[in-house]
Write a protein that binds this DNA or RNA. Structure first.
Length: 551
RNA sequence: GACUUCGUAGCUCAGUUGGAUAGAGCGACUGCCUCCUAAGCAGUAGGUCGAGAGUUCGACUCUCUCCGGGGUCACCA
């Protein structure tokens, strides 16, 4: 927030004057306790050693310096072992309202991304069946992460990698073919390993309706046609489910085109040139163990087919070739053992740690009335994402997923998420937004108007600690966004929104707005709450959750 | 076994470059709608931050050891 920036620059001036560097551990942060003012710094304590002076002594000098070199400061106090607590004036804080009014949806945006070209890849589930709840968590996280990074100044592209070339897809074709033959009474041996979900049979029926003669096709031809049809059908379903979940992918990248387009060979060549490949036992190996992996990995199997890893390397190679500087992969936590070898591959491409990050999404334990429901695409027993979204709504599901750290497992109880109570914080936040909307409607009905952008006089009624608490919280929005972006953790947004909403509900209950008694107070408070609801809407947008005007 | 991740209130979880008296929601208990949305508010109770040692002005945070839960260890994807 602005308060941090101005204190920081004052401190830098002080250090420069003394000919000192900024100590690595020195921070400027929001004071946790209002008694400690608005902004606190520990700088004096860290200067004690180099200056050979008592921390509180230095703090006193520092306090005077801050007072003289920072705009909008009301008071600076030395506290505890040597903290400097800075309090800003009410006039300073009121500017936050004006800033929100001027910037609107862009309020709180940051430029820390510096336009860096970033690719966020997420979901990327094999098109072998409908998305289940677990995919939903990854979808919500990836989508929200992309929104956050964009607001933080990154140039973000989102992508879904379609695994349409490997063994799983052959099994898919075979599964449909098997069902299809069964439907017309031409049974064949049950395949060893196949998808048993009812959607497989549905697809087979559909194909037969369109072309009854299909059953006469040769085994090979039949499987191929089943594969092709099923893949497209399922992929369309996936796309629809994601749309309904408000999840967007700009690109859909096919593994098959990667293989057919010779990009795999190109990537192999790059690895070979870097000296990392070798032949052994009739297979092509990649010496990932020289780059931090446990052991070497196979790229091309002895039967001539490619491993999943091989095309994935090619895919990431291609991402860099398309000019992306930062690759973020959102994966299910079961892929976590896969990370070191992918890192190795990235390094072999001449890229480093800075260019590649993986966000691991832990399991979702779906519960219905407290009873666990198992999810397995193969066995065909699962709760689909579409069902869940239909049941609880995209807002509640997304908020739930995005409220927890991605790397810890989550219990998702359908009944609980359906409930419109505090089990379900999404309504708490949305209610805060709707309440303000209702208030603004009421104001309009009563002929109370406030300007689109307030001037200082219009905000003069903001004098209470409650006012300042809301202003300070809004001012922290940008810091929250930056933290979420730099740590790739989406859950900060929902926690921030809970806190801001809490302040708003409390304010609303304690302080009258339209009935405050005088026009300045009414106008000021109305402008304040309008700004708060704007910030809530911005935050909800980061999560892809709607900000309703009515509830 | 190796690697990885987590262990914070009865429950679900925040607490990320080490900061002041460890937080929130739910649940429990006590109050608050003749008054702008009670899907709300105010308050009470609830803790050995898994255990131990170390690093230092200061540790929930960093290091090591141990205990306990999850996950992964394919020429599968």
């Amino acid at each position: 927030m602005q308060a941090f920036d101005s204190v920081r620059s004052a401190l830098s001036g002080f250090l420069q004057e003394k000919g000192l560097e900024w100590p690595a551990k020195a921070v400027v942060e929001a004071a946790k306790d209002p008694k400690h003012g608005d902004v606190a710094t520990n700088l004096a304590m860290l200067l004690a050693k180099p200056l050979h002076r008592a921390p509180r002594d230095i703090a006193a000098e520092l306090a005077a310096w801050i007072r003289d070199h920072t705009d909008g400061v009301e008071n600076v106090e030395v506290a505890g072992p040597g903290f400097c607590n800075v309090t800003f004036s009410q006039v300073f804080w009121r500017r936050v309202v004006q800033q929100v009014e001027k910037e609107g949806a862009a309020f709180g945006s940051s430029t820390i991304g510096g336009g860096r070209k970033t690719l966020v890849e997420y979901v990327s589930a094999n098109p072998t069946g409908p998305l289940h709840v677990g995919h939903g968590r990854g979808a919500a996280a990836g989508d929200s992460l992309a929104r956050i990074l964009r607001r933080a100044g990154y140039d973000v592209t989102t992508e879904y990698y379609i695994n349409d070339a490997g063994r799983q897809m052959r099994i898919l074709g075979m599964s449909v073919w098997y069902r299809l033959r069964n439907l017309v009474g031409r049974t064949m041996a049950e395949p060893e390993d196949y998808y048993r979900g009812s959607y497989i049979t549905d697809i087979a029926k559909e194909m037969l309706e369109k072309d009854p003669s299909l059953a006469d096709a040769s085994d090979e031809d039949g499987k191929e046609r089943c594969y092709e049809y099923a893949k497209n059908e399922i992929l369309e379903g996936i796309k629809k489910d994601l749309r309904d979940f408000r999840v967007e992918h700009q690109n859909w990248f096919s593994e098959k085109t990667l293989v057919d387009g010779g990009l795999v060979d190109k990537a192999f060549q790059a690895l070979k040139d870097a000296g990392y490949t070798y032949e052994k036992d009739g297979a092509l190996w990649f010496a990932t163990s020289r780059l931090g992996d446990d052991k070497d990995r196979v790229l091309r199997k002895s039967d001539g087919s490619l491993t999943y890893f091989a095309s994935d390397i090619a895919y990431h190679h291609n991402k860099f070739e398309r000019g992306f500087d930062w690759l973020i992969d959102v994966w299910g936590a079961d892929h976590h053992g896969y990370v070191p070898r992918m890192r190795a591959a990235i390094e072999a491409m001449g890229k480093g740690k800075k260019n590649f990050d993986v966000v691991l999404i832990q399991l979702v334990n779906l519960l219905i009335n407290g009873q666990p429901v198992s999810m397995s695409t193969r066995a065909g027993t699962f709760e689909t994402l579409a069902d869940v979204v239909r049941e609880v709504g995209a807002d509640a599901a997304r908020f739930m997923f995005l409220s927890r750290k991605t790397d810890s497992p989550v219990d998702f109880d359908l009944e609980a998420v359906k409930q419109r109570t505090m089990e379900n914080p999404v309504y708490y936040v949305q209610y805060a937004h709707a309440r303000v909307a209702a208030l603004l409607r009421r104001a309009a009905e009563e002929g109370v108007t406030i300007p689109d952008v307030s001037d200082d006089a219009a905000l003069a009624g903001l004098t209470l600690p409650d006012d300042m608490a809301l202003l300070r919280k809004m001012a922290l929005y940008r810091d929250m966004l930056e933290q979420a972006a730099t740590t790739l953790s989406v859950h900060h947004v929902s926690h921030y929104l809970m806190e801001l909403s809490q302040l708003l509900h409390s304010y609303y209950t304690k302080n009258q707005i339209l009935k405050a008694g005088d026009p300045v107070t009414t106008g000021s408070r109305l402008a304040l709450l309008r700004a708060v609801s704007r910030v809530i809407a911005n935050g909800l947008d980061l999560m892809g959750v709607s900000a309703p005007d009515h509830m």
